[in-house]
């Protein structure tokens, strides 16, 4: 009796998970099918592969300077990730390694700013960038994002698991503090950095609201902005939009699958 019950329950679990997996994957399938169909077919909901892939690609490259746009997104994402990790991991390390009462209070204030939504600082930030004549520059995109309280917090939590004996030993060997950070801490914390790379790279690559406000000319636009503006016309050419969407999604998928194992390690390590 209870075996029948257990079997029914396990059947229910598999059915639920299969449905969830189907719903999760379907939009990706829809996106890939869409790249091969014409706009009218996509709007009519055609879910079989068509023959318009080549046309869609040529149309996209005719409408948008894709090389420039792809470069803009790549540049911002990579430079942004490197700067964010450098500045924010240094701070997270220091808050944990050099304890002091004053810095503890500073840290508490930083944590409070986590609850400030971006919309609340967007208007003054824009006026500020306008006064500094930084509108329509990559500098204006990068500056507000590289000191990330979330990443500082994440690195501080992860640093709690960093063995202090390593630092003491390195000190006895005569290493300076910055050398300890660079040559001992950094290699040991590989998994933490990998997880942080995924989080920051995706956030930068997918960043929408702030670039939408700041980047105003076509040659400075990012892929996310282009996808959005292609799809927001009154009669969007969805075949073209789908090709652009695939291009916008591929890099984050690649980064995720390359670093996936380290991501889970880094995440669970930081929870402990």
């Amino acid at each position: 009796m209870s075996r029948v019950f257990a079997q029914a329950r396990s059947g229910l679990v598999y059915a639920g998970l299969s449905l969830a997996a189907f719903v999760s994957i379907f939009p990706f399938f829809w996106m890939l099918v869409g790249t091969t169909n014409t706009a009218p077919d996509i709007i009519k909901g055609k879910i079989t592969f068509g023959s318009a892939l080549f046309d869609n690609i040529t149309n996209l490259f005719a409408q948008v300077d894709m090389v420039q746009v792809f470069w803009n997104s790549t540049f911002l994402a990579i430079v942004g990730t490197v700067l964010t990790l450098a500045i924010s991991s240094l701070a997270g390390y220091a808050f944990e390694m050099f304890p002091s009462k004053t810095r503890e209070r500073v840290f508490a204030v930083l944590l409070l700013t986590l609850s400030i939504p971006f919309a609340a600082i967007m208007v003054p930030l824009f006026v500020m960038m306008a006064k500094l004549t930084l509108i329509n520059t990559f500098t204006a995109i990068l500056l507000p994002s590289i000191a990330s309280v979330f990443i500082i917090f994440y690195f501080r939590q992860a640093t709690k698991a960093f063995p202090h004996e390593l630092r003491d030993a390195a000190k006895i060997d005569g290493l300076k503090e910055w050398q300890i950070f660079l040559y001992i801490y950094l290699p040991v914390m590989r998994s933490t950095y990998a997880a942080a790379i995924i989080i920051v790279f995706m956030a930068n690559w997918n960043n929408y609201l702030w670039p939408l406000i700041v980047l105003q000319t076509n040659e400075n636009k990012t892929l996310t902005l282009v996808v959005s503006s292609l799809a927001s016309s009154y009669y969007p050419d969805y075949g073209v939009v789908m090709v652009a969407t695939v291009l916008a999604t591929l890099p984050t998928i690649i980064v995720f699958f390359l670093l996936q194992r380290r991501f889970v390690e880094g995440l669970t390590g930081s929870v402990k």
């Binding site: 701070a91 220091a94 700013t113 600082i121 208007v123 003054p124 500020m128 507000p144 590289i146």
Partner: peptide, 27 residues
């Protein structure tokens, strides 16, 4: 230790002061 502690977080404090705290107060 104190000096290093402040040096390591100095870039963060400058950036957050300019692009987070100042906009909040201004807002």
């Amino acid at each position: 230790e104190q000096r290093n502690g402040w040096l390591f977080i100095a870039p963060t404090l400058v950036l957050l002061g300019l692009f987070m705290v100042y906009p909040i107060v201004w807002s």
